[in-house]
Amino acid sequence: RYTFRTRGPEQMKRVVEWARRQNLSYRVEVHGDEYIIHAE
């Protein structure tokens, strides 16, 4: 189980790509310009 905090969509997309390659399920929360990605 991982939690990532990123700023801006570019970093968020990179984390999502990584999670997909690992076959993890993930969800993204948006708080202003901060993205929180939960993957497991």
Rank of each mutant, 00 (worst) to 15 (best):
Ala39Val: 15
Phe4Ser: 01
Ile36Gln: 02
Phe4Gly: 01
Val28Leu: 05
Gly32Ile: 04
Asp33Cys: 13
Arg27Lys: 10
Arg1Cys: 15
Asn23Val: 03
His31Val: 14
Arg5Met: 07
Arg14Gly: 04
Pro9Ala: 13
Trp18Lys: 00
Gly8Asn: 15
Leu24Thr: 01
Tyr26Gly: 00
Leu24Gly: 01
Leu24Phe: 09
Glu17Arg: 07
Asp33Tyr: 05
Glu40Phe: 15
Arg14Asp: 05
Ser25Pro: 05
Met12Pro: 00
Val16Cys: 11
Glu29Gly: 02
Gln22Tyr: 11
Met12Arg: 03
Val30Pro: 05
Tyr35Trp: 09
Glu34Asn: 07
Val16Glu: 04
Met12Lys: 03
Arg1Leu: 08
His38Tyr: 15
Tyr26Ala: 04
Arg5Val: 14
Trp18Ile: 02
Glu34Gln: 09
Asn23Ile: 02
Glu29Lys: 04
Gly32Met: 06
Ser25Ala: 11
Pro9Gln: 13
His31Ala: 10
Thr3Ser: 06
Met12Gln: 02
Arg7His: 10
Ile36Leu: 07
Phe4Trp: 12
Glu34Lys: 05
His31Cys: 15
Gly8Ala: 13
Val16Met: 06
Ala39Ser: 03
Tyr2Ala: 03
Thr6Lys: 02
Glu10Pro: 15
Trp18Glu: 02
Ser25Glu: 11
Arg14Leu: 13
Ala19Gln: 00
Met12Ser: 02
Arg5Asn: 05
Gln22Val: 06
Phe4Met: 03
His38Val: 14
Gly32Trp: 04
His31Gly: 03
Tyr26Phe: 12
Tyr35His: 03
Arg7Phe: 11
Glu34Val: 14
Arg27Trp: 15
Glu29Cys: 13
Val15Trp: 10
Gln22Glu: 09
Asp33Ser: 10
Arg27Ile: 13
Leu24Pro: 01
Val15Thr: 03
Glu10Lys: 10
Glu29Pro: 01
Glu17His: 05
Thr6Met: 07
Trp18Asn: 01
Val28Pro: 01
Ile37Gly: 00
Asp33Arg: 06
Arg27Thr: 14
Glu34Arg: 05
Pro9Ser: 11
Arg5His: 13
Thr6Arg: 03
Gly8Leu: 15
Val16Leu: 10
Arg14Trp: 08
Ala39Gln: 02
Arg20Tyr: 05
Arg20His: 08
Val30Tyr: 09
Ser25Val: 13
Gln11Thr: 09
Tyr35Leu: 04
Val15Gly: 00
Arg14Met: 11
Glu10Phe: 05
Arg21Trp: 06
Thr3Lys: 07
Glu17Tyr: 05
Gln11Lys: 07
Lys13Ile: 10
Glu10Arg: 07
Glu40Trp: 15
Tyr35Asp: 00
Lys13Thr: 08
Glu40Tyr: 15
Glu17Ala: 10
Arg7Gly: 04
Lys13Pro: 00
Leu24Gln: 01
Gln11Tyr: 06
Gly8Asp: 15
Glu17Ile: 05
Glu34Gly: 10
Thr3Pro: 02
Gln22Lys: 11
Val15Cys: 14
Tyr35Thr: 04
Glu40Asp: 09
His31Gln: 13
Glu29Tyr: 10
Leu24Arg: 03
Arg20Pro: 00
Glu17Asp: 12
Gln22Asn: 15
Ala39Arg: 01
Ala19Gly: 00
Arg7Glu: 06
Asn23Glu: 07
Arg7Ser: 10
Ile37Phe: 05
Ser25Cys: 13
Trp18Cys: 11
Gly8Val: 15
Pro9His: 13
Gly8Arg: 14
His31Ser: 13
Glu17Met: 07
Tyr2Val: 07
Trp18Arg: 00
Glu10Ala: 11
His31Thr: 08
Asp33Leu: 10
Asn23Ser: 08
Gly8Tyr: 15
Glu34Asp: 08
Ile37His: 00
Tyr2Leu: 10
Tyr2Ser: 03
Arg14Thr: 07
Ile36Val: 12
Val16Tyr: 02
Ser25Thr: 11
Val30Thr: 08
Val15His: 03
Leu24Asp: 00
Ala19Leu: 15
Ala39Trp: 13
Thr3Asp: 03
Gln11Ile: 11
Val30Phe: 09
Thr3Phe: 11
Gly32Glu: 07
Val30Ser: 06
Tyr26Thr: 08
Glu34Ile: 14
Tyr26Met: 04
Arg20Asn: 08
Ile36Thr: 05
Ala19His: 02
Ser25Met: 11
Ala39Asn: 01
Arg7Met: 08
Ile37Trp: 02
Arg20Asp: 06
Asp33Ala: 07
Arg27Met: 09
Arg14Lys: 11
Glu29Arg: 04
Lys13His: 11
Thr6Tyr: 03
Asn23Cys: 14
Tyr2Trp: 13
Ile36Tyr: 05
Gly32His: 04
Val30His: 06
Leu24His: 03
Asp33Ile: 05
Phe4Ala: 01
Phe4Pro: 02
Thr6Ala: 14
Leu24Lys: 03
Gly32Phe: 05
Glu34Ser: 07
Gly32Thr: 03
Ile36Gly: 01
Gly32Gln: 04
Val16Gly: 00
Gln11Val: 11
Gln11Met: 12
Arg27Leu: 08
Phe4His: 02
Tyr2Thr: 04
Val15Gln: 01
Lys13Ser: 08
Ala39Tyr: 10
Thr6Cys: 15
Val16Phe: 04
His38Ile: 15
Glu10Leu: 09
Phe4Leu: 04
Val15Lys: 02
Gln11Gly: 12
Arg20Ala: 09
Thr3Tyr: 10
Val16Ser: 01
Glu17Gln: 08
Ile36Arg: 03
Phe4Ile: 11
Glu29Ser: 06
Glu10Val: 08
Ala39Thr: 14
Tyr26Ile: 14
Arg14Gln: 10
Ala39Pro: 01
Val30Lys: 14
Arg5Leu: 08
Glu34His: 09
Thr6Trp: 03
Ile37Ala: 00
Val16Arg: 02
Tyr26Pro: 03
Leu24Met: 13
Ile36Phe: 06
Arg21Val: 08
Trp18His: 02
Tyr35Phe: 11
Gly8Ile: 15
Glu17Gly: 04
Arg14Val: 11
Gln11Phe: 07
Glu29Met: 07
Gln22Ser: 08
Ile36Ala: 02
Arg27Asn: 07
His31Arg: 13
Pro9Arg: 14
Val28Gly: 00
Arg14His: 05
Glu29Trp: 07
Gly32Asn: 06
Thr3Ala: 04
Arg5Glu: 04
His38Lys: 06
Val28Tyr: 03
Ile37Thr: 00
Gly32Arg: 04
Arg27His: 11
Glu10Thr: 08
Tyr2Gln: 04
Arg21Leu: 12
Arg14Asn: 06
Tyr26Leu: 09
Glu17Leu: 07
Arg20Thr: 11
Arg21Met: 12
Arg20Leu: 11
Ile36Met: 04
Trp18Phe: 03
Asn23Ala: 06
Phe4Thr: 02
Arg1Asp: 07
Thr3Ile: 14
Glu10Asn: 07
Arg1His: 14
Gly32Asp: 08
Val16Pro: 00
Arg20Trp: 06
His31Ile: 14
Gly32Leu: 05
Glu34Pro: 00
Tyr2Glu: 02
Pro9Tyr: 15
Arg27Ala: 06
Ser25Lys: 13
Arg27Glu: 09
Leu24Trp: 09
Val28Asn: 00
His31Trp: 11
Val15Tyr: 08
Arg1Gln: 10
Tyr35Glu: 00
Met12Trp: 05
Arg1Glu: 09
Arg7Leu: 09
Ile37Leu: 04
Tyr2His: 08
Thr3Gln: 08
Val28Met: 04
Thr6Phe: 08
His38Arg: 09
Asp33Gly: 09
Arg27Val: 13
Ala39His: 03
Pro9Met: 14
Glu17Lys: 06
Glu17Trp: 06
Arg21Ser: 14
Lys13Tyr: 10
Arg14Glu: 08
Arg21Lys: 12
Gln22Met: 15
Gly8Glu: 15
Val30Ile: 12
Ala39Cys: 15
Glu34Phe: 14
Arg27Tyr: 14
Leu24Tyr: 10
Lys13Asp: 05
Phe4Asp: 01
Gln22Leu: 14
Tyr35Arg: 03
Val28Lys: 00
Lys13Asn: 09
Arg1Phe: 10
Ser25Leu: 11
Arg7Asn: 10
Val30Ala: 08
Arg21Ala: 14
Thr6Pro: 04
Asn23Lys: 10
Ile37Asn: 00
Met12Glu: 00
His38Phe: 15
His38Trp: 13
Arg21Phe: 06
Arg20Met: 12
Glu17Ser: 06
Arg1Met: 09
Tyr35Gln: 02
Pro9Lys: 14
Val16Ile: 13
Arg5Ala: 05
Ile36Lys: 02
